[in-house]
Simulated assay, not measured.
Amino acid sequence: MTTSLVAKVKSRMFIVAHRRARTMLDGEYGSVFRGRSLDFDDLRAYNAGDEVRDIDWKASARYGAPLVRRYAAVRRQTVLLVADTGRNMAAVSRGGDAKKDVAVMALGVLGYLAHRHGDLIALVSGNAESSSSLPPRGGEAHLEVLLRRVDEAVAPDGGRSDLTAQLAHVARTVAQRTLLVVVADEAAIDDEDEALIRRLAAQHEILWLTVRDAELAGPDAPRRSYDVADGGVLLSLLADAGDVLADYRRLVDERNDRREALLTRLGIVEGHVDSVDGVLPAIFRLLEKHRRGR
């Protein structure tokens, strides 16, 4: 019997993360929609990390301890998850896990947070050959279908990765303003991508989570590995030469610096994750960074 991917996500959230951490993660997610059609809901005890401006001082004085206001959305929001399912995601992440597994866990955590808050979840995924979408719906069963779609689509012999194709699909098909959550690897951004991302950022709010690639050069690199993009052998022994290693790292840094600089200019918050174990803290940092930047 196939293990539920949602069950794996919930196990990690409710076993690895203690109750206080889960409460803070819920609070950070809720802050994404702060100020958007939100009504006062109730009061709860103040937790570390809560916004000071949300403290209800009069109620706190009566209660004898700090209380913060909680808000509920008047209508359900839509969270659109955008995922690269090309063969690049079948490669290994910096922490040693398959990038696909890291991406599925990240999508699962964000999707489950959306579910807990009553929001709708949609998906756009694909590779250079085709893009597909799942419409916005609620519920764990829908989240399971979404995660399964991503998990089963990624394979070493699958289509070439092309995040641009997925973003272009969103630009063509999604008219209503929504929250886009992009989960991809260390994608290179060219002029075409820049124009497309700029267009999307003007219409939607975007959170970007980058799954870091494995080190392919230097002492921590595997002695023999393969490039999933073309099947070629990567001879890391050759990269021990100082000039080769320096050039490789310079190119990687330039690629990542361009992407990070563009996202920063457009007000898009980017987070980074190395492994499945690092997903929860990475998402917390991403949401916290978004809240502090608003």
Rank of each mutant, 00 (worst) to 15 (best):
T173A: 12
E192L: 10
A195N: 13
A188G: 12
A187T: 12
L179H: 07
D191T: 12
Q203T: 14
A175T: 14
Q203R: 12
A187H: 09
W208N: 03
E194H: 03
I197T: 06
A171T: 09
A187M: 15
D193Y: 07
V182H: 02
A187R: 14
A187Q: 14
L207E: 04
V182R: 04
Q176V: 12
T173D: 15
V182P: 01
E186I: 01
R172Y: 13
R198A: 11
I206Q: 02
L200Y: 00
L209K: 07
A184T: 15
I206L: 09
D190W: 05
V181C: 09
E186A: 09
L207V: 09
I197W: 03
L209E: 03
I189F: 10
A195D: 12
T178M: 05
R198V: 07
A201M: 02
Q176T: 14
T173H: 15
A195M: 13
V181F: 08
Q176M: 11
I197H: 05
A195Q: 14
Q203F: 02
L180V: 06
T173S: 12
V174G: 06
W208K: 05
L209Q: 01
A202H: 15
D185L: 04
E205I: 05
E194F: 00
A202D: 10
R172P: 04
T210D: 06
I197M: 01
L196Y: 00
A187N: 11
T173R: 13
W208C: 02
V182T: 06
L180I: 07
D190Q: 06
A187K: 08
A202Q: 13
Q203C: 08
A187D: 14
V181S: 07
L200V: 00
